[in-house]
Every structure is written in C-alpha cells, then in structure tokens.
Design a protein around this nucleic acid. Structure first.
Lengths: 200, 200
DNA sequence: GTCTATATTGAGATAGAC
DNA sequence: GTCTATCTCAATATAGAC
C-alpha cells in the first residue's frame, strides 16, 4: 500500500516530513487531530498529497507506529548497553513527549483494529528484547530474579515513569517531586551497588 | 449548562443512562466513538435528546469525568480502610476497564482544554486523599517513608497495575503472567508483615 | 421530555489536470 | 510528485412540533 522510495529522493523526503508532522500533531493535539488536512497544512503541501503517500489514514498511523518502534529499538539497545542500564531505562521511559504519543496510540488502537495488531506486535517484540537483556543484568544488581523477574522490573520502571510523566503533562503536582526524587535515588543506589564481573 | 434533576425523576434516569452508554462506548471504541448518535442509539433515544441533557459533547465528557471521580473516591476510601489496603489498592488499579477508560480520558484531554482542567483537578484531589492515607499506613508495613514516600508507592502501585492492565487489553503476553504473579506475591508479603498497633 | 428535520462543518477519499 | 476540484459521509448543533 504505502509508497516506498529510495532514501534521499524527493518522495522519501516528503514522506518523512509527513510522518514528522503527524507525530508532532499527535503529541500536541491528540490522534484525532491528525487529519489529512492538518498534516498537509503543517507540511505545507496539499491535502490530496497525503493520500498519495498513505492511501488511508490508517496506513499513516501504521507507518508512524513502525517508525516509532524502530527508533525505540535503537534507544533501548543503547540504554541496555550503557554503563548504567537501569538509570538509562528510567530516563528513556520518562520522556514526556514519548509518553504522550504512546498514550495516544493506545487510545487510537481502541477503535482501529489495524493499529491494534501493529502496536501489539511491536510492543511484544520490544518487550522481548528488554526482558532478555534484563535477565542477564539483574543478577549484577543483586536482584533476585525469582522475586523480581525481569518482566516486573520492566513494568515497574516503565509504569512509574509513565505515570509521573503523565502527571507532568497534565499539571498534577501533588507529591510528584517527592516521587521523582525518591525513584531516582533508589535507582542510583542500585547502580552504585552493581558489580560487573568480567571486564566489558 | 448541564440539566440537573432530582434523583428518581425520569430526566435523572435518562441522564444516567446516557452517561452509562457513553462510558461503555468509550471503553469499547475509544473516546472518538462517543458521538451524539452512537450514545443515543445505545440508549434507545433520539440523537437530539443528547444535546438536551448535554448541550455540547464536552459537557458530556466533563460529566463523565466528575462521575468517574466520585465513584473512584468511594472505591479508594473503601480500599484504604480495608484490612489489606495495599492489596486492595492493587486490585483497584488493576481494573482493565478502568485503565482503558482512563487512557481514553488522558488522550481526550489532549485536544479539549476543558477536559484537561477537569481531569487535572480531580486527579489532584484523589491523589491528595490517597497520599494522606498512605502516610499513615506505610509505617505499619515497616516501609521507610524517607526512601519510599507515599507518592512513590502510589505511583508504583498504579503505574505497574496500569501497564499490566494495558498489556492485557492489547493482548501483549510476553512475561505478563510472571510480572503479575511476582507483584502479587510481593504485596502479599507486605500485607503479612504488617502490624497494626491499636485495635481497629 | 422526546422526537423530526435540517443547517453547517469537516473528515476521508478519488479523479484528473499539470 | 503535486495540485485542484469534488464526492460522500458523518458529526455537532439548533429549531420547532408533539
């Protein structure tokens, strides 16, 4: 369905610009604000052109999901390979714009089955990578993976960060600074206690 | 704006039915699926009537937020007063339909300023109640409130539950059962270790 | 309180010119 | 590859009959 062009061509540039605009609009005004017209006007092209690259709006959303997943795959790999993986994961998950876009995508899946499939597949794939890495890392922190399996640690890191980011986006302030400070202190403690056997 | 009627009157019943229908539709098809037509058809009335009770669709959403906050205030109070508060909070936060509705509301706030204000205010109020109660409860669990302040515990309980509920709704299965089992075991441990001084 | 009818607006999508 | 023009549909909202 989607029009593919070799990188660097004019088509590829316009296509990228459309995706960029759509993502921006989504994070600012919600997924419902992403329309052929709104995207076209931000890109500075005609509305009809959007349908040239993405025949249906669902196609646009699917492309957005795939691109986002690719970017996140790279960020995740970098975080997991860094010298302070838990801290890096925390920062990654705390990105307010990212949380905002994710919230929108989740909501969008509720009435677009095609998106639902795509989000599920990509989430499953990303989670798999993360869990495999955490299974190796957690013992280094002295974390008992029987009591705190990778899946729980991943859910905690992401869940807490998501909630606090969401509160930040909303403007909810009650206790937020306390929670952030304590979370970061706890993570710093863990990083300090980590002992990497071997010499990577 | 909104039409108020004494409880039990015909108007009050219709109004309630409209809110019920809207909430259901929102959890099934997303907030964008909530239209005067869809709500009216589910209630079994004419679309024009929706605007009699809620002049604008925003009014409907605001009423939905307020009602949801009221219900949650009661549930929260009951959970906090129960014999196993942390476990009760966990269950409360794990409600998949609730998470789904909350996700939708969050998304809806992105392009409706009136909703944003309302959600923020209600969230702030609810959080205040929860934090005050946790400040008293946590010491009973032997939790050091300096390291794990109420706001962090609240965010953790809600964040983890939200993430896992979301994965359940999506159909993401990787590691989900592990995480749930471990989370519930950890909470059970805490409840077992709790010692309530006094004789409530 | 509820309905019918309708005005208005904006969205998705397509055809065809350039 | 991009634009203009246009079709079709559905949503919000209002007016007025019953």
């Amino acid at each position: 369905m989607t029009v593919e062009r070799r990188a660097g061509s004019k088509g590829a540039r316009t296509r990228t610009a459309i995706l960029d605009a759509a993502e921006q609009i989504m994070s600012e005004g919600g997924y419902a604000a992403v329309t052929s017209r709104s995207v076209a006007s931000r890109v500075g092209v005609n509305a009809g052109l959007i349908h040239y690259y993405f025949p249906t709006i669902d196609d646009l959303f699917v492309a957005l999901i795939d691109r986002g997943a690719d970017v996140n795959t790279q960020r995740l790999a970098r975080a997991l390979a860094s010298s302070k993986p838990l801290e890096a994961l925390w920062k990654l998950n705390s990105d307010r714009r990212g949380v905002s876009v994710l919230d929108e995508l989740m909501a969008a899946t509720h009435h677009r089955p095609a998106l639902r499939e795509q989000v599920t597949a990509q989430a499953e794939r990303l989670r798999g990578v993360e869990l495999a890495a955490l299974a190796e890392l957690l013992p280094q922190y002295g974390i008992d993976v029987e009591r705190f399996p990778p899946a729980l640690v991943a859910a905690t890191l992401q869940g807490v960060a998501l909630l606090l980011a969401r509160q930040g986006n909303l403007g909810v302030s009650t206790g937020r600074n306390d929670a952030i400070a304590a979370a970061e202190a706890a993570i710093a403690d863990l990083e300090a206690a980590r002992h990497t056997s071997g010499h990577s």
